[in-house]
């Protein structure tokens, strides 16, 4: 599903590589926590998976496709198979909940029929039925993140990338969001979540990949956040 072979990423502005000879494999349907301090390379990792950036060295494969040999016009196709959730939700403030979710389908040219059918379905799944016509600033942080997850999931991606999705939420709301991500994972979607939240990592007991200065320092199935926290 996701494979990195000896991936190194060096940014021209930094003397130290953001990722240094990283190799790993993530299988279909896995739930993976990506942990490590700020600047350890988590965001770079996610950017490479989205082909927002290319590695300096090495091979990145997503859905068995080598991103290095992929031409520019195929990138949108790749991203249609991936969903993204961020710490800051990234909702469109002038669009309602339903419109925010529908936007993701409209811009990839899905027929209006399909949009009318799947948007209410996914909103119900994330627990936002009845709030379709609210604007983002009328919602709590947890609800906004649910909208973002609905938008990321509405096109049924094979992979869901979550960059500190609970970073702005209180512990209780974070738990609810994790339940939702778990539920999405059970539909067969691979979930890769970068996080600093050790409560969550410790309670979920999923695979943990720890990055330290761009190097994989730990890769453990059913892991915990670690003693060094």
């Amino acid at each position: 599903m996701i494979e990195l072979q000896h991936v190194t990423k060096i940014y021209p502005t930094s003397p130290r590589p953001a990722l240094d000879d990283v190799s790993m494999q993530i299988d279909k349907g896995e739930f993976v926590f990506l942990i490590g301090s700020s600047g350890s390379g988590k965001s770079t990792f996610l950017r490479l998976l989205l082909k927002e950036d290319n590695p300096t060295k090495g091979v990145v494969k997503v859905n068995d496709k080598n991103l290095g040999t992929m031409s520019k016009w195929q990138v949108p196709k790749l991203r249609r198979t991936m969903g993204c959730v961020f710490q800051d939700f990234r909702l469109l403030r002038n669009k309602t909940v339903a419109e925010n979710v529908a936007f993701a389908l409209e811009v990839i040219n899905k027929p209006q029929r399909t949009i009318k059918r799947v948007v209410p379905e996914v909103l119900e799944m994330v627990g936002l039925e009845g709030k379709e016509n609210r604007l983002p600033n009328e919602l709590s942080g947890g609800e906004q993140q649910r909208v973002a997850i609905a938008r990321a999931f509405v096109n049924r991606p094979l992979v869901l990338l979550a960059d500190e999705p609970t970073g702005n939420l209180d512990p209780e709301t974070s738990q609810d969001i994790m339940l939702l991500l778990e539920r999405i994972n059970r539909t067969g979607t691979t979930v890769v979540m970068a996080t600093h939240d050790y409560h969550i990592v410790d309670s979920m007991r999923r695979r943990v990949i720890e990055l330290n200065d761009g190097v994989v320092s730990r890769d453990q199935s059913r892991g915990v956040y670690g003693v060094g926290r």
Binding site: L50, P76, R79, R80, R90, A104, V107, N155
Partner: peptide
């Protein structure tokens, strides 16, 4: 957002 959801 368009870029991330794969709009051409």
């Amino acid at each position: 957002i368009m870029r991330l959801v794969g709009a051409s």
